[in-house]
Design a protein around this nucleic acid. Sequence first.
DNA 1: CTGAAAGCGCTAACAG
DNA 2: CTGTTAGCGCTTTCAG
Lengths: 337, 337
Amino acid sequence: MNETRRITSHDVANLAGVSQATVSRAFMPEGRISAKTKQRVIDAADKLGYQPNVIARSLAKSKSNLIGVLMANWNNPRLTETLQGFSSAFKQSGYKVILQSVGDGDTVDDALRDFLQYQVDGIIVISAVPGPVISAACMQKKIPIVVVNRFARGLNACSVTLDGAQAGRAIAGDLLERGYRRFALLRGSPDIQVITDLFYAFSNTVSDKGLGGQINEITNISGYGDGRKTIVDLVQKGQAPDAVVCSSDFTAFGVQAGARYDLDIAVPEDLGIVGIGDSPFSWWPEHDLTTLHFPVDEMVRSTADALLARIQEPELEPQAIGLESRLVVRGTTRKTE
Amino acid sequence: MNETRRITSHDVANLAGVSQATVSRAFMPEGRISAKTKQRVIDAADKLGYQPNVIARSLAKSKSNLIGVLMANWNNPRLTETLQGFSSAFKQSGYKVILQSVGDGDTVDDALRDFLQYQVDGIIVISAVPGPVISAACMQKKIPIVVVNRFARGLNACSVTLDGAQAGRAIAGDLLERGYRRFALLRGSPDIQVITDLFYAFSNTVSDKGLGGQINEITNISGYGDGRKTIVDLVQKGQAPDAVVCSSDFTAFGVQAGARYDLDIAVPEDLGIVGIGDSPFSWWPEHDLTTLHFPVDEMVRSTADALLARIQEPELEPQAIGLESRLVVRGTTRKTE
DNA sequence: CTGAAAGCGCTAACAG
DNA sequence: CTGTTAGCGCTTTCAG
């Protein structure tokens, strides 16, 4: 058996007849080295199949080029786009993504601690908010955090979310214009600030217009099954809305199914349905859902920009970015009169 | 400003009045150390907020506890389950996942080279196959690779895929029994071995039964739009099948849409539709799709097991695991007579 | 059980 | 431009 010791820069140095440091320089972008020796080193390197050891480099430079991404909600319909977006955005800047999911008994903060131990250069937390102690620890180590889809209230972390107020106004304005008046607002957990903002702005817009709209907000409704059940319940209790706004497309699909298969209510004539997210299949004619377009690309770019900027310049002020969204009008809301 | 030097095991050692090596032992599972001093060290450590530096540990132990996951196809409908599965499966074994996606100009092999530089302990390649040189390099460094959804023909790597032959037989048997005879088989790229196997077994089963079935295989059809267009084309060209098998659920949804919205063909009476994957919404009544259930959980488990086993014991033979699947019969195929 | 010392493989002054 | 020499922070013999 060939005793396979890992080949290091020393081996390359020997073969090339230079010092180990020279090998190092040959592999550094701004290594001051003559083109000729550099070539000799490179040749020797790939004759041996040498690959620089990034772990050792990280230790020496105190920079890992790792970004920790923590995913707390795997039910997001735009999830794959998000992950793919981050992975390629950071690849372009020379970073690698290390991915953790929260669940299985351990918490957001545990996961973040793991990231710290791996000396990540920055952290992205998606759909969760870090605890105060751990984020203080990050701040003290100058490791920037960007929170996505949640607010990082007073945490010295950036956050990137929908602009809930703008979205709420947009949806309410549009629905009112189409003649809807009795609204049901369906959401999951009641403590997601963005949705709170959105519903709040929605309500305000409705009252401001003075058209006599009424609003019924229902919490802890999430996913297809919940949506379907909820619309049936409402109708049976005599609280039938004429429009439903759902905090997620999946819930909206469920409402649509309830109307179509359980209740035989005409959509959009007797019931308008609006989702949030614009999931990749909301345009399919089976659904043809009017939904708020969540600008994933822009979100990824803002997040990456904010994080990278703070990796280079840790003293930058934290920033709360609100993404503007627009309503994509499809077949689940009526034509404007 | 507080000059924030990172706190290391030395700092803890000083505070605890022990040597740095002792601190190290206190944080190692099998560190030979007395309970008393260990406690003193732990106390000192979290008084300082000390977190062991995993990068340094990796360098010292030549073991990174990193698993590289390379994702080559982001259109897989079971993608989130897959990613979540791996991330939590490996977390349980003390590994972290470092995620890359191929695309944006660089290749599978580039990505794998990056993984090698990060000294990953093992690699998972999803929906792509590594080149021969890079996988030779991995083998020589004793870094195991498991290929998922593709065969690793002669690469000294494990592979985990559907058992195409079994799946093909199952689908064909079921469709024949339901009286379908004129089959269209829709697939994307023609060089995915699993689908080739599947369609081959499908064809064989059809001929073996001697019921006079005929088969039309069409390649480069992938996704909703393609599926929809394809069924319309077939009908217009007078080649209407009475059953369509699609290599992905999304294509099947498209076929269904074509039948429903463009052609007004009765499904399942005049057209049977079968997908592959069993995506999370194939059971929704809008689709109610008969589809081959892809056992994601089992796939994740097999993959993780195979990889972890080879991390511990690099000399294990490569293994090709074929996952058994079953057809989930829903509304897009007729009742058996 | 604990301390001293030699690495792990690379980067970064500092001379020459 | 290149070699020498210290580290980066931790693990691991090897003595004691």
